[in-house]
């Protein structure tokens, strides 16, 4: 485990079994990944790809069928590590008969936080997630977006070093989504490590430092967002004032046609396009993705071959 690794998994696998112990579904296959301190790490994948299973394994809610996972260098079954972790599940699983304040006090008391400090933090978090006016209402009266907000607040009650967010923006309106994204970025600024899963690609692209893409329980891709979205074997030349009719000759004669080369570099695709391509290719080419020349994504904004 690297010195600044927060999470490390080795050959992490999970097979769900039926009542008689017979294997039913292989939810995760030999996952190797490492999350470093202070980064925002996204786990992407379609429904049933193993994202939530990965997070549950990391939290000790599931036991691995094979392999191991370490958080802060300790096994996931070690309860003491939870002092440094905050977790927001994919649905807001909270007691509906408590109000926002009671909920945060309930979770806060589970940590070693002095009473006065806890009260202060409860008020701050309620303000932070914008629930000040509804803090005395029972959660059963909350909308889905409000429940996500209080869920996020409970995940941050202990000022965790590592925050695991399972689809944090689901159910939120665009303003709420933007606020949460800002909050996540702010958490990174405070030196915290954030792991988030989801399939809202634009959101992930905006805030993640690195991402892992899972499909059918397999790790298909992992790396920095900027690296992954860069198309390696295509050179992009940005031109100005080029007539529309000149596209056929553009590759060889840019300068001959009097155009001015203003930028030369690697084109990038969108995360959404990359994601869809990986998922489409997954059945055809099982295992970790090998990038071949003819499998390159099309550059964004490029008209492509005619």
């Amino acid at each position: 485990m690297g010195s600044n690794s927060i999470i490390e998994t080795r050959n992490l696998s999970k097979v769900y079994k039926d009542f008689w112990g017979r294997p039913k579904v292989q939810a995760l296959k030999a996952l190797d990944l490492e999350v470093k301190q202070g980064e925002i790490f996204g786990v992407l994948g379609p429904n049933g790809s193993g994202k939530t299973t990965t997070i549950k394994l990391l939290l000790g809610l599931l036991f691995p069928s094979e392999g191991e996972a370490l958080i802060f260098g300790e096994p996931t079954t070690n309860v003491a590590k939870n002092e440094r972790i905050g977790y927001l599940p994919e649905e807001t699983y909270l007691y509906k008969y408590l109000n926002a304040e009671e909920t945060l006090h309930f979770y806060g008391r589970l940590f070693k936080i002095p009473s006065r400090e806890r009260t202060k933090r409860v008020h701050e978090l309620i303000d932070l997630v914008g629930l000040t006016r509804s803090k005395h209402r029972q959660l059963r009266e909350y909308s889905k977006g409000m429940q996500r907000r209080i869920g996020l607040a409970q995940a941050l009650i202990n000022q965790p070093e590592l925050v695991l967010l399972d689809e944090p923006t689901s159910g939120l309106d665009p303003i709420g989504t933007d606020e949460i994204k800002k909050l996540i970025v702010d958490l990174r600024r405070q030196g915290k490590t954030v792991v988030l899963s989801g399939h809202l690609l634009a959101d992930m692209q905006d805030i993640c430092d690195r991402i892992a893409i899972l499909h059918h329980g397999e790790l298909r891709e992992i790396g920095k967002v900027s690296d992954l979205l860069t198309v390696q074997d295509i050179t992009q030349i940005k031109v100005k004032d080029l007539p529309e009719s000149a596209w056929e000759e553009i590759r060889g004669v840019v300068s001959r046609h009097g155009g001015e080369v203003v930028d030369v570099g690697r084109p990038t695709t969108t995360l959404e396009e990359l994601f869809l391509r990986i998922v489409t290719e997954s059945d055809k080419y099982p295992g970790r993705r090998r990038i071949a020349a003819d499998q390159q994504p099309t550059p964004a904004g490029s008209p492509g071959p005619k």
Binding site: L59, L61, N82, I85, L110, F111, Q154
Partner: peptide
């Protein structure tokens, strides 16, 4: 889930 992921 939200309880057992606390130090309980």
């Amino acid at each position: 889930y939200t309880i057992t992921t606390k130090p309980v």
